[in-house]
Design a protein around this nucleic acid. Structure first.
Lengths: 197, 197
DNA sequence: CTCGCGGCTGACACTGAGTGTCAGATTAGG
DNA sequence: CCTAATCTGACACTCAGTGTCAGCCGCGAG
């Protein structure tokens, strides 16, 4: 899932990254994403602008890098499942793995989702990440069901729909301050494909 | 659908905009979207950088403004339909209206889609537009079916899925140089929700 | 015809994101 | 302890996007 962080250097880098993100996140919530500049962030974190930019290529990544492992979580979950289920069940369970991974600190996630929702640039970048995950997820979904002749439109559509559900459900959940049960929300969302109406 | 262009000023502005976009589009296809600057575009079009920027707020809009009416087309189509159909049929037909609107010049659309596909910034911005359309589409879909207590998760998921289908189908169609039949492609995509597997 | 008025244009200045370079400090590892 | 790789801050640069300002052009009123 994550690359082996066996080097001293890697550990240090990872820790610094986390600290910079923590400081920056407070600023974003306080002032608003667009109003904060890299100069502000680097000053607040006590490093130079150059250094800050070296840890995060873009301002969006300062917030969204926490979602990077989600693609891997989903593909791994798809592989680990019993293959004798239908596509929708497998996708639903894979998404449940994803939300379980994300819900470490409930309050933290709610805040991040709120910040994302009210910042178009963050929404856009998040959707971009999602689009990067899609081909691999489609491949894993198909590997066990049908066969090997390129991604089928059916599978692509199902994966795209499932990923849409992920954000819709997370948005709904964040709107309730993390009160609602994510499993039930997933079920309610997937009902869109089984209810006749 | 489109605002009344009754002023001579509006007509002029619209025409200039189209011409600027035409010139710019050639540059993008020739050199690549990211490699072309506003300075290049304005020089090629024979206007100042300031003027060019006044016609298009962002570089992405130079390419994507042609998609602006699509949201309206979809909502209008949804309204115009007989309401005694199921959600999927209504969405499928609305999407067919959208693609009929887009397929004016086949070669033009194929080229644009190719440019978008290989330019992450354009993909991102297009998805942003799509997200703007969604709430209104959800409202129109629900107005006739169920009732009035806020957007249901079911409807939201279905609309999101349908919009995903739009781009998946257009991508597929562009990959075949506009040979495949868009109606059949839509049917094949929507089959993802009716096929049991 | 001409005068003024509103909008369009180009020139310019400015902020901020993101890239690249370079010299010096730091640290890993032999 | 020594060396080589890496990290850091400082700086310069390009380009997107915003805002301002003065001049121009067309258009209607007098």
């Amino acid at each position: 899932m994550s690359a082996a962080p066996v080097g001293t250097r890697e550990i240090s880098r990872h820790a610094v990254r986390a600290e910079l993100a923590r400081v920056a996140f407070n600023r974003f919530c306080l002032t608003g994403f667009d109003q904060v500049t890299f100069a502000d962030l680097s000053e607040a974190a006590g490093v130079s602008r150059s250094t800050f930019l070296r840890y995060f290529g873009t301002k969006e990544d300062v917030v969204l890098f926490v979602f990077d492992p989600v693609g891997g979580v989903i593909t791994d979950a798809l592989d680990a499942e019993r293959a004798n289920q239908d596509d929708w069940s497998r996708l639903r369970n894979a998404l449940e793995s994803a939300v379980r991974f994300l819900v470490g600190d409930v309050q933290q996630l709610v805040t991040i989702l709120g910040l994302i929702e009210q910042t178009p640039a963050l929404c856009a970048r998040l959707r971009e990440k999602q689009a990067e995950w899609r081909p691999e997820i489609v491949a894993r979904l198909q590997r066990t069901t049908s066969s090997t002749d390129g991604p089928s439109v059916i599978a692509t559509v199902r994966v795209a729909a499932a990923l849409e559900i992920l954000w819709i459900v997370l948005g709904q959940w964040a709107a309730s301050d993390g009160q609602e049960d994510l499993g039930e929300l997933l079920d309610a969302a997937f009902a869109a494909f089984s209810t006749p109406a």
